[in-house]
């Protein structure tokens, strides 16, 4: 109430609260869970059709004999990807986001309650194919791995800079198609490094297996640092 004339004056409440704070809180909770169970978690992001599921199938075949691998699949509809992963030999759980365009930390928290991810294992979260929305949502992963296929064009880092700026590793997929498309790897890297100077690159072909060993070595190296960390 105004002291002069008695007119109505509402209260001013300062909040200064980050709108992503609830997602980030749950992501930190997930991260704590992974740390305690010594689980190495990757958040795999890309456009639809860049080859994430094929790469995961090949990764499972290559690593299944000496690592425990688990996969959380995110798609708007169907369990097709989880079925493919299970067939390749790793337990998988499918999250259908319906009309949603990204996974968030809460969805991962719920998936972890449904699927028993074993201690000392490696968990791949295959995010919804989308180069825009998943960029803002921390899931609690150790590393964010961005996949780009050479058919998408070398200008993607400048067109979708948020995803590039928030990722740790960039897999350049479908390099077996390089002779047939106009994709300049050096120009692509140059653009990506403007947005994220710390980004690392591994060119691969999920189809032919080219570069796959560099990718699995990247995972094994992280695995050993995590084991000695804890």
């Amino acid at each position: 109430m105004c002291e002069t004339c008695g007119c109505h004056q509402p209260r001013e409440i300062e909040l200064n609260r980050d709108i992503l704070s609830e997602n980030n809180r749950i992501a930190e909770h997930n991260r704590g869970f992974f740390k305690e169970k010594k689980i190495l978690c990757f958040n795999m992001v890309s456009s639809p059709g860049s080859g994430k599921t094929t790469l995961l199938e090949k990764t499972i075949t290559a690593m299944n004999h000496d690592e425990k691998l688990f996969v959380i699949e995110g798609d708007q509809q169907t369990t097709m990807d989880a079925d493919r992963i299970e067939k390749a030999g790793a337990p998988a759980i499918q999250i259908n986001t319906g009309s949603g365009c990204h996974l968030d930390a809460h969805m991962i928290h719920e998936a972890l309650e449904k699927m028993e991810v074993k201690d000392h294992s490696i968990l791949f979260i295959e995010n919804v194919g989308n180069l825009v929305c998943p960029a803002l949502f921390d899931l609690g992963e150790k590393k964010r791995v961005l996949m780009i296929s050479v058919t998408e064009g070398d200008d993607k880092p400048l067109k979708y800079p948020y995803m590039f700026s928030s990722s740790h590793l960039c897999l350049i997929n479908k390099i077996d198609l390089l002779p047939y498309v106009e994709f300049d790897i050096e120009k692509f890297k140059e653009y990506a490094l403007i947005v994220n100077p710390d980004l690392k690159f591994i060119p691969v072909s999920a189809k032919t297996g080219d570069g796959l060993e560099k990718w699995t070595n990247f995972i094994y190296d992280l695995r050993s640092t995590i084991s000695s960390d804890l």
Partner: peptide
Amino acid sequence: LFTLCPRCGSIPSSILSGKEFRVLSLQAD
């Protein structure tokens, strides 16, 4: 995110502002 320094053309070492996304305040009863 890919604006370069207008003086020397280098990338920024840090982003000082522009990443904010928050509720500042309310007027309420």
